[in-house]
Computed example of a mutant assay.
Amino acid sequence: MRYNISARLIYDATDGTLTLPESNEPDSQLSITSSALLYFFLCNPQVISRDDVLKRVWDDNGLTSSNANLNQYLSMLRKTFRLYDIDNIIITVSRGYLQLNPDIAIEQLDLPPQSFADAESFSETPGNEHEPPVVLSRPLSAHERGVCWYIAGVCLLTIAVLLVFLSSIGSKASHPITLTQMPHGQCEIVASDEMLRSVSGTIYGKNFDAVRQGLDLACKPGERFVFFYGDRLDNHNLGRVFLAHCASHEDNPFGYCDNYFYYSWKS
């Protein structure tokens, strides 16, 4: 659906593009949410409450709604259209109510799709000289249907062979990682047994403290850390480093985590 807004701009609701009337190429493009918000007001030009806008544009589409989000996208729309000398595309009527600016001329360029009922009544109107042509398709012959089934069978067989081949070369035996909880001052650390076998506990704790302090992370009750580093990637530093800062719960040892992963931590 396309709209001519104030004879200055063509808005295409299908992709959110804004095109100057004398141009064939889009001049700019609205974000998905901004375009959905504008299209809602174009379809509902009457005064409408903010709660209805939040429900129809955000909640009904599975998005988290808030007045802060609505204010942000209203501001973005107004700013975008102000670049084309169109002020206040959406206005605040009163506290809690909004409206598409009635002073802005808006022309719908595309007619809505004709419904089946309209098309049927149109064809049955006496004296109608513009009935849509009827296109008859030729049914496929038995030979043509056989060729189609043969091609489809070959394609399916090829895909199946490829899947089997990829699964065979990409399959690797999985080995579960055993984690050991170790106290370290006020911090609770969970380390892999492989990590603890490769380095002494003192050095492990010293390196953990250096990384944690570098990230400005404090130890708090109900939180735990997972720390891993490998010192074989480079000769004079610790190479790759992984640190996860997690919240723990009774029913879930890792409620949520902030993960940090980087190379060449220490020279």
Rank of each mutant, 00 (worst) to 15 (best):
D87C: 03
A119D: 00
P126Q: 10
I89Y: 08
I91Q: 07
D85C: 02
C148D: 10
L109E: 01
V154E: 05
D85N: 13
L162S: 13
P102R: 05
I86W: 06
S94Q: 10
V164Q: 07
A160T: 14
Y84E: 10
V164T: 12
H130Q: 05
A119M: 07
E131K: 15
N128I: 02
Q108M: 09
H130N: 09
I86S: 05
S94A: 11
S141H: 09
L100Y: 08
G127Y: 08
R82F: 10
E107K: 09
L157F: 15
I106A: 04
T92W: 00
I151D: 10
E131G: 09
H143P: 01
S121M: 10
R95G: 01
K79C: 01
Q114S: 08
E120A: 11
A152E: 08
R138T: 15
V134P: 00
G146T: 08
Q108E: 10
D103I: 02
A105C: 00
P112A: 08
D103A: 06
N101T: 09
D118I: 04
I106N: 05
G146F: 13
I86D: 06
P126T: 12
I91C: 01
L100Q: 07
E129M: 05
N88R: 12
V147N: 12
T158S: 15
L98R: 02
D85L: 04
D110T: 01
I151F: 15
L98Q: 03
Y84C: 08
A117L: 08
V93E: 01
Q99E: 02
E124V: 04
A105K: 08
F81D: 05
L136H: 12
T125V: 05
G127K: 06
P126Y: 12
N128R: 11
L109S: 03
G153I: 11
F165G: 10
E120S: 06
C148A: 14
P102E: 03
T158K: 06
D85Q: 13
I90A: 01
Y97Q: 11
A160I: 15
E144M: 14
L111Y: 03
L83N: 10
V164P: 00
S137D: 07
E129L: 11
S115F: 01
T158R: 07
L166K: 07
D85R: 07
V93M: 01
I90W: 03
G153S: 15
D110R: 02
T92A: 07
F81H: 06
F165E: 02
Y84I: 09
W149S: 11
L162R: 11
N88Y: 10
Y150E: 06
E131F: 03
W149D: 13
S123F: 05
E129I: 06
L111V: 00
